[in-house]
Design a binder for these strands. Structure first.
Length: 868
RNA sequence: GGGCGCAUAGCUCAGCGGUAGAGCACUGGUCUUACAAACCAGGGGUCGCAGGUUCGAACCCUGCUGCGCCCA
């Protein structure tokens, strides 16, 4: 049986991802592998995609998240679950409206020129033409989503879900309309919820203004003084107590405003007196409410001052220095601190400084909903992975503020509330008649995008209709998302999921059983990726250069639970190399005639065969446990080491000697068996290369629908592992000797082996290039490992100094080990208190070290003196 | 200002009570008939600092310093 008669398989010697990936993906889709059947008897496994933004394109954060989700879903599909990964996008109200308005602006057209209806029509046109680029990019990544079920938050069905839940919440008085201070973006011209505001420490100024001889206040927003309607002090502040109830004249305006006592004031900050601008500051608003103060709005929606003589028409940032200058002219500026670093809120969409503003908006009363969300985690119905993130969750849901849900936009779900001519307010459900007649108008605002995203785990499955898909796949099994949006949509999905399904009972109401949180993708130095910083990477570039599997494997390998993931090009390259390694290992196996078939009984297998099968069994069990615990980094690492360090570096090398002998046929079966299982378990993370190799190896249709390999405990073989472990130590020692001696890797050296190792002597000699002793064999050096002694004939050309150095190093290590052991054994406390097993271990270490030291000293003494 | 987290090899990270690990990078040697995107061998860490608990601490506790994140 000579291998040369076997045909060379049709695999080139280098893996070329570009040639493989696209056709494979299209084939999977065509054959419907990613579609799910809600009528199936299989247990359900459903994950909904965290909906990417319709304006977005694939970035590394998506690639990361999708890699994890895809791996989970693919594994469950292989395990026989009815696996469904729901794809889709959200309509991203502000972002999308901004994009389309920018487009229109190029032609000098504003949305107001078009009017609401025509503008929304334009947005739909834009969506059809340019939106959703990310969906095509997901195919490159290999995302196994059920394309036939793709959803969009503005679709009819999902819009109906939005209207349904709005009506229910409204009727339950969990939605209300109220005038409050909101975060106003003067550029986007809309309200923002608290979490759409990003705070940063910015340079500003702190100006202290004398309102009167007794009253000095400090502010970072001097222009707001125009809207002051009071000055507040702490009611117990002895310095100012007597002023409470008096009035002071507000400079520049001539208005007289009261001095009030309010416990909110911090007497230790500044002068202990604060100006109160109820219409332009959330804290001042509360003070204003408590003291029934007038609420004076001094800016319009663009942030332009609306009154007050000389300041009228100035932008807020122009008004600020102008007001300060005017006050200075009156000698009222006590001090100015500049720069003064303080926290400033910015619109998360456009980064414009947010203006707190009194405004009439719609709100969700989150109290009972947030409590239910906290309870679902508290009582274990919903698990958060990693558990350490739970405190973050409780910290948020247990102290959640009411959610501002109205947005002054045109793109989105319009609030289903109608106002009648006589002040009537009617909330309209999806099947209700819209009020008609003179004077009835619908609310102008639309809902926050997150309001519809919050329904995503069930609106995508058909809710509010009781569809078979909903019955089968709700609750979802897992939600995979970044810890940074735990509050954005996880909290909201929990609130709405639990509320909408409350009637189904606590177990069925939850939107998902598990929340698996991942971190942020960072660059190779751990820095946050951002366009402005210039370190953002387009994942498409890396997929082009190294293949999708390489990118996926790199991301999975970096995914420690809840932790951020640094990624650099070097690492993607390393993953590409790993894929190439798999490619070539399979290529070798095929050239060698490997095949998948029934394994012979253990008795007929060599120690090497039994060892790799034993290791495979262990690795399969480990990977299963790691998958169940969302330990993507660990499972990737486990597979990387098994594939490369154990299978390729040892088993394949050992197989080469076996293939030339009686065990050849068994070896082919073992090679095929291990490779088959290895490719299967790697498939969820690196679907493309494994598919290409596995179909070639097995001749079967696809790995996507192949079964998941189960660990087989019967293969566990400690004896074989011990045998091969000895062989590995022996081979490594001889190689070290050869390297230290400066022997060329290919150079054959005659050697005599005594003291064991008979079983694998052929393998040993092959791996170390040692030939059988010939006539006139004269040992000039020896390598000893345990009971085995290898005597080598270097034809007298021994580098004695190198040998002395090598043995000296070993000796030093052994002496150190002995010293440590003796120190412990000399400690009576250790002997008395440490567990017996621990003491025994140290005793064993001492005995072994003593023996090695004696041997090494003798060997050193036997070396020729002075020669080199 | 409040809360949370992290400081381990040149870099990025595992380990979380019993002789310090990985990947990449680095050094030396090899085109050894699957793979030079590879193979073989090697060097490299008083586990941020200071105390404490323990027979024993990278690992538990306290404080400090430096970073990061979230919230105000």
């Amino acid at each position: 049986m000579t291998e040369s008669t076997l045909p060379e398989p049709a695999l080139p010697s280098v893996y070329d991802p570009a040639a493989v990936e696209a056709p494979l993906y299209e084939g999977w889709v065509e054959r419907g592998y990613f579609e799910a059947d809600e009528k199936s008897d299989k247990p359900p496994y459903c994950i909904v995609i965290p909906p990417p933004n319709v304006t977005g394109s694939l970035h590394l954060g998506h690639a990361f998240e999708h890699t994890l989700i895809d791996a989970l879903v693919r594994r469950r599909r292989m395990q026989g679950y009815e696996a469904l990964w729901m794809p889709g996008m959200d309509h991203a109200g502000i972002a999308t409206q901004n994009v389309v308005e920018r487009e229109l602006a190029k032609d000098g057209v504003s949305r107001h020129d078009l009017g609401r209806e025509a503008f929304v029509e334009k947005v739909w046109e834009w969506k059809a033409e340019s939106g959703g680029r990310i969906l095509a990019q997901m195919r490159r990544l290999g995302d196994g989503v059920a394309w036939s079920r793709e959803r969009f938050t503005m679709d009819d069905g999902l819009s109906r879900a939005v209207q349904t839940i709005f009506k229910r919440l409204y009727d339950d008085e969990l939605i209300y309309r109220a005038e409050r201070i909101i975060n106003w973006c003067v550029r986007c011209h809309t309200a923002l919820s608290d979490i759409e505001v990003e705070h940063s420490d910015d340079d500003g100024e702190l100006v202290s203004i004398r309102y009167s001889d007794d009253v000095v206040v400090a502010t970072t927003r001097a222009e707001t003084m125009l809207g002051d309607t009071a000055v507040a002090v702490h009611p117990d502040d002895e310095r100012y107590k007597h002023l409470i109830g008096t009035e002071v004249e507000l400079p520049l305006t001539g208005r007289r405003i009261p001095i009030v006592g309010d416990p909110h004031v911090d007497p230790a900050f500044g002068t202990g007196m604060v100006k109160v601008t109820p219409a332009h500051d959330p804290n001042d608003f509360e003070i204003g409410r408590r003291h029934d103060l007038p609420m004076l709005t001094i800016m319009d929606e663009r942030g332009v001052i609306t009154a007050h003589g000389p300041f009228q028409g100035l932008d807020r940032f122009e008004a600020r220095p102008a007001v300060v200058a005017a006050l200075r002219a009156e000698g009222r500026i006590v001090s100015e601190k500049r720069p003064y670093v303080h926290a400033v809120g910015h619109c998360s969409r456009c980064k414009t400084v947010v203006e707190p503003r009194l405004s009439l908006q719609w709100w969700v009363r989150v109290g009972p909903l947030a409590k239910a969300s906290g309870d679902a985690v508290r009582d274990g119905r919903v698990a958060i992975h990693p558990k350490s993130m739970e405190s973050r969750w409780f910290g948020w849901v247990d102290d959640m503020h009411d959610w501002c849900i109205s947005r002054q936009l045109w793109w989105g779900h319009r609030i289903p509330v109608w106002y009648g001519p006589a002040g009537e307010v009617v909330c309209v459900g999806p099947d209700d008649d819209v009020p008609t007649g003179e004077g009835w108008v619908q609310d102008e605002d639309v809902l926050d995008t997150w309001f519809s995203s919050a329904l995503w785990p069930f609106s995508t499955l058909g809710w509010p209709d009781e569809t078979p898909a909903l019955e089968k796949f709700y609750p979802n099994q897992v939600l995979v998302t970044g810890y940074d949006i735990l509050f954005f949509w996880v909290a909201r999905m929990m609130m709405f999921g639990l509320y909408a399904h409350a009637g189904a009972g606590p177990e069925k109401a939850i939107p998902f059983h598990t929340i698996a949180l991942h971190g942020m993708v960072r660059d190779e130095r751990g820095k946050k990726m951002s366009k402005s910083f210039g370190n953002a990477v387009d994942p498409l570039d890396w997929m082009d250069a190294y293949g999708s599997d390489a990118l996926r494997f790199t991301l999975a390998r970096g995914a420690n639970p809840g932790a951020d993931v640094p990624i650099g090009e070097d690492w993607v390259q390393a993953s590409r190399n790993f894929c190439n390694k798999l490619w070539n290992a399979t290529r070798f196996a095929l050239i060698s005639g490997a095949r998948v078939g029934e394994l012979p009984p253990s008795e007929e297998l060599t120690a090497a065969d039994r060892w790799i099968l034993s290791r495979l069994n262990t690795v399969l069990a480990e990977v299963d446990a790691q998958f169940e615990d969302y330990q993507f980094a660990k499972l990737s690492d486990t597979l990387y080491h098994f594939a490369w360090d154990e299978f390729c570096d040892w088993y394949v090398e050992l197989a080469k000697t076996q293939l030339g002998g009686d065990a050849a046929e068994n070896t082919r079966l073992v090679l095929g068996h291990v490779l088959d299982r290895l490719l299967r378990v790697l498939h969820p993370v690196t679907p493309f290369v494994t598919e290409a190799l596995w179909t070639t190896l097995t001749g079967q249709e696809s790995l996507v629908v192949a079964s998941w390999p189960a660990a087989d405990a019967a293969r566990h073989d400690p004896a074989a592992e011990a045998t091969v472990g000895e062989l590995q130590r022996l081979v490594t020692e001889v190689r070290r000797f050869r390297s230290d001696q400066g022997l060329k890797p290919g150079q054959k050296v005659p050697a005599r082996v005594t003291g064991g190792a008979a079983e694998h002597e052929a393998a040993f000699r092959s791996l170390t290039r040692l030939t059988a002793p010939e006539d006139g064999f004269a040992a000039t050096a020896q390598v000893v490992v345990g009971a085995v002694t290898v005597e080598l004939d270097l034809s007298g050309a021994v580098d004695v100094e190198a040998e002395r150095k090598r043995l000296g190093k070993d000796l030093a290590n052994e002496r150190k080990a002995l010293e440590q052991a003796l120190r412990k054994l000399g400690n009576e406390q250790f002997l008395a208190k440490a567990p017996e097993s621990e003491v025994d271990k140290v005793r064993g270490r001492r005995t072994a070290a003593e023996a090695e030291i004696a041997r090494l000293e003798a060997q050193l003494a036997g070396l020729p003196q002075g020669a080199s």
